[in-house]
Design a binder for these strands. Sequence first.
RNA 1: GCGGUAUUGGUGAAGUGGUUAACACGCCGGAUUGUGGCUCCGGUAUGCAUGGGUUCGAUCCCCAUAUUCCGCC
Length: 370
Amino acid sequence: MKIKYNLLHEEKNTKARLGTIETNYGVVDTPMFMPVGTRATVKMLTPEELYDVHSGVILANTYHLWLRPGEDLVEKAGGLHKFMNYHGPILTDSGGFQVFSLANPKDITEEGVHFKSHIDGSKLFLTPEKSIQIQNKLDSDIAMSFDECPPASATYEYMKNSIERTLRWAARGKKVHANPRQSLFGIVQGGAYEDLRKFSATETVKLDFDGYSIGGVANDNESKEDMYKAIDYSIPYLPKDKPRYLMGVGEPSDIVEGVIRGIDMFDCVLPTRIARHGNAFTKHGKINIKNAKYKEDFTPIEKDCDCYACRNYTKAYIRHLVNVDESLGGRLLSIHNIRFLIRLTEELREAIKEDRLLEYREEFYKNYHE
RNA sequence: GCGGUAUUGGUGAAGUGGUUAACACGCCGGAUUGUGGCUCCGGUAUGCAUGGGUUCGAUCCCCAUAUUCCGCC
């Protein structure tokens, strides 16, 4: 079945919404944070550990799974859920972000995008149709339209051409979308340009998707102000009965700000990436566990955190693991960081329910320093 | 005991009679936002075993001492 978004409550003082999304793999609460599992695994974590941090939707990536192991193999395995043994909802990114991170602007044509494989350098060609067909076979619960994720610093002219092409790509992808169990999201682009966001949002909504994303943010040194503009310029044109997904975000403060502006879904590699590099989120800000000051710190990362890492291990121990390059260090930090962001969304949902989101934000910033 | 050899930061080491003593690792910081990359970017010896001497100037030359390693008795 397609997903179904239920709007439960609109916060009195902000644009925040409390809701649920019904999926093939259970009901999830929004606003929510979705951990990223690019290559059909949230790096270092088992599904059991994901359930343990209360993960709902997780991401996987079309481009990466297309190259290895290939969508046909995943299909043969019985789809992504069976293949990776994850019994929660899965969203697949379309490969649009890889247009930004791996391809050059000159490789982007009306028909599709020419890539060089990051693995062996072989020539690849990804089109909107191909991306959707791959995602159909992967059998994720939510597929994303194949878009161009232009750099935030793109000129107005470039951005305008890009969003128009992305709209044509969205229509082409929707046309070939053929998996009845799978929902399909459209993506709004347009940088921090008000009229382009408006145009992109209205035209994307006309194509009638199961949910809408705001893309192209938090890249290329985009300022916070521009990111908030991108959200504010897009949200008014998105329907209330569909989920809104801010792609690639983010940092704890960005999640707070996004929720206040009406975002329901977030994903980000940050919690797992910084974990692998020895960093942990805390309510006081990010810490680097490798810092010498934690050498003899025999307390948990956060003493009131309910995650497996904080219930069982000290900073001194995790620091040691990270320093000697033992993978358990990265695992424990990943568990903590994902739990941290999910717990943040749990608290935000409580605050929305009680119409005290602005107070929550104030409290959040009083503690959180970066 | 005699002869030779070497002694450079936390470690392994390059190097030169004359501005700021390579590089690597380690250590100390930082970055990271729809994940190609346990990656990237900084900082880290006011001193070249110790004490004398030669020289305008010595880590680099000479002498002594200590220690290292290799021969010989």
